[in-house]
Write a protein that binds this DNA or RNA. Structure first.
Lengths: 351, 351
DNA sequence: AGGTACTGTGGGAGCGCTCCCACAAGTGAT
DNA sequence: ATCACTTGTGGGAGCGCTCCCACAGTACCT
């Protein structure tokens, strides 16, 4: 049938040249029409479009990539094992936002996991080959070499959750400081007096910002900040349980807890229950993320919602701008592009 | 270290030609080394490899794709909305298996959702542009036009779960018939006498096979098959609930139920509970999929496990063979390639 | 009349590969 | 010595685009 050896004149997919011949114009003109250049008369454009439709012409991506030195693809790099990716609603929401923002584009999204060393290796190779025009980085730890590799290769990148206040990459983040303030102010407003905080991993910038927000909210309300009420966690359930137990031992009189994540709050709840404290009667509990866990907890957990889908959109916006400008924002000496999106407190029965 | 400034003519990435110059050989020879051709002497190979390492050469994928007319990429097409994808462990397991099988390959995996019409449109465009060498199709309904489109475009494809016994595409499936038999034989072995079956969607081939397995297992054990004990479901929880209620009304004396999916079993459990039947004391319950639901049900659900990761691997094996052979298996007139993998009964407290 | 500026168009020159033919050199049978 | 292979190698000819220069045509000045 169709494809024997010599895929000659008319056998395979139509080429630009064939469309040009059909429309009775030159190759350049067809290219202009395909790429939406304004420098084509309406009559010619119509002619070309007809030919394209008749032949069912679809541009050859490889040829375009080779000639134009771009791939029309960006990667969403997840430096976590796949399991984490599927377990945490954060990622799927992010993917949704990114996908939505990309759907009006010709850009294609690649999902790349870099959890294992092996996968890291592959990714490095991949990036070195410049197989994507830009990279979206989510969930990056402070000491990850990935961002630097990206700068080195001059690949535009946007990070969700800057690594520090001095983040050099373009970044999108939710307002961790403000979110923490909301949580604490809410608890104060409910009449709680002794409010503890179980932090996230201390090497995560966002976790630090939440601590800052916690402190400032108390201070601004005229409470003093008792360092004994701050206990480090690590975003995990077990960490939350341990931290809560420690806090209860140290300050049995506490009447509220702000946990740095919903999962942490779940752990804390467990410890509270074991200690015979009722939620919210004895101790009010507020989490962070507004994940499915929060909605299904017993009692449902008051939590700080991050606009994750919107963050995904914002990342794409930033990235596409940089890609269009053909180099990372920082190397153009432009003002650093850091976006911070507002959070929202979702009030449920736990507080 | 490796990459300082003046690399070759223009300062960009090194090309084949530059590697050739550096190694003092011809372009063709370098290409041969890169692609692992045996027709290169060991001495020359060493020379070229050294040059590659020194220059940090990485092949240009676009150029290769253009010249060789292949993309070294395959797509995993999920004709479902993203939400389903993340909700069902089936997909993540599949992805794991596929990823693992692909990790020794140069092949790149693309994850493409085609849940909405819009996404469908994009996918069609994508396939028409031949941007992948092959396609993995999961969760395809009987009337989906996708498989035909693929054949039309002569894109190699492997489907998980054939659409019928006469599936033309290469396919991988678990042994639905055998799995159902295992479930029913298990119930018979436990001394159950009146075993009902809540089916899956009847337009899904696998669901039909499970009904066949149910029937034959009963027959072979000397039981007669009572059609009143077979109630159609649709794989959903609500469907399971409804079906169970209908069965209880019709045959209040039943003492076991084989449900076509864990989710269905969850619905059935609800109906049983409402009717005051205890599990497994009054009615034994067996599901299908061995999903997280099964493990977390109360009581934990006996279920038929499908080797989903292995299925992913098998799909890749089939697909890569077809891709290497450059056209769909069926058009080569080869024996159809249908793989069927064994299932395993996971015995828990519900039976 | 000539000059200048634009708009629309055609087509050459690559982009960096793979494929394949040509050919030199070696090997062994006749 | 001739022929017939085999092995290893070089490099031409594309693959189907984009980029950009050249140039015809038109418009509006001097």
């Amino acid at each position: 049938m169709a494809s024997h050896g010599a895929r000659g004149r008319s056998g395979g997919r139509p080429t630009l040249e064939e469309v040009a011949a059909r429309a009775g114009v030159g190759r350049g003109t067809v290219s202009r029409v395909i790429n939406g250049s304004p420098r084509v008369s309406d009559a010619t454009r119509a002619l070309v479009e007809a030919a394209v439709a008749e032949l069912g012409y679809v541009p050859n991506t490889a040829a375009r990539a080779l000639a134009a030195n771009r791939t029309d693809a960006i990667a969403l790099v997840v430096p976590e094992p796949e399991t984490r990716f599927f377990a945490e609603p954060y990622f799927s929401d992010m993917l949704r936002g990114v996908g939505a923002a990309l759907s009006d584009t010709e850009m294609q999204l690649l999902l790349i996991f870099a959890g294992s060393d092996r996968e890291r290796q592959r990714l490095a190779q991949y990036l070195a080959a410049h197989r994507v025009d830009g990279v979206l980085l989510v969930s990056v730890h402070a000491d990850d070499p990935l961002p630097d590799m990206l700068s080195q290769l001059e690949i535009p990148a946007v990070i969700s959750g800057p690594r520090s206040a001095a983040e050099t990459l373009a970044s999108v983040d939710s307002d961790n400081y403000g979110g923490a303030r909301q949580a604490v102010e809410h608890l104060i407003g409910r009449g709680r007096r002794t409010i503890a905080h179980i932090t996230g991993r201390l090497d995560v910038y966002g976790a630090q910002r939440r601590i800052d927000g916690y402190r400032d909210a108390l201070r601004d309300a005229g409470h003093e900040v008792d360092e004994l009420l701050i206990e480090p966690g690590d975003f995990s359930e077990e960490g939350g349980r341990r931290a809560m137990a420690a806090l209860l031992e140290r300050r049995p009189d506490l009447d509220a807890v702000f946990a740095a994540s919903d999962v942490t709050a779940a752990g804390a709840r467990q410890a509270l229950r074991e200690a015979g404290r009722r939620i919210p009667d004895d101790v009010a509990l507020v989490g962070y993320d507004d994940s499915a866990i929060a909605r299904h907890m017993d009692p449902p957990l008051t939590s700080v919602r991050q606009p994750i889908q919107e963050m995904g959109r914002a990342m794409i916006d930033l990235l596409l701008t940089e890609v269009a400008d053909r180099r990372p924002a920082v190397s153009r000496g432009l003002e650093r592009r850091q976006m911070v999106l507002a959070t929202e407190l979702v009030d449920r029965a736990s507080s």
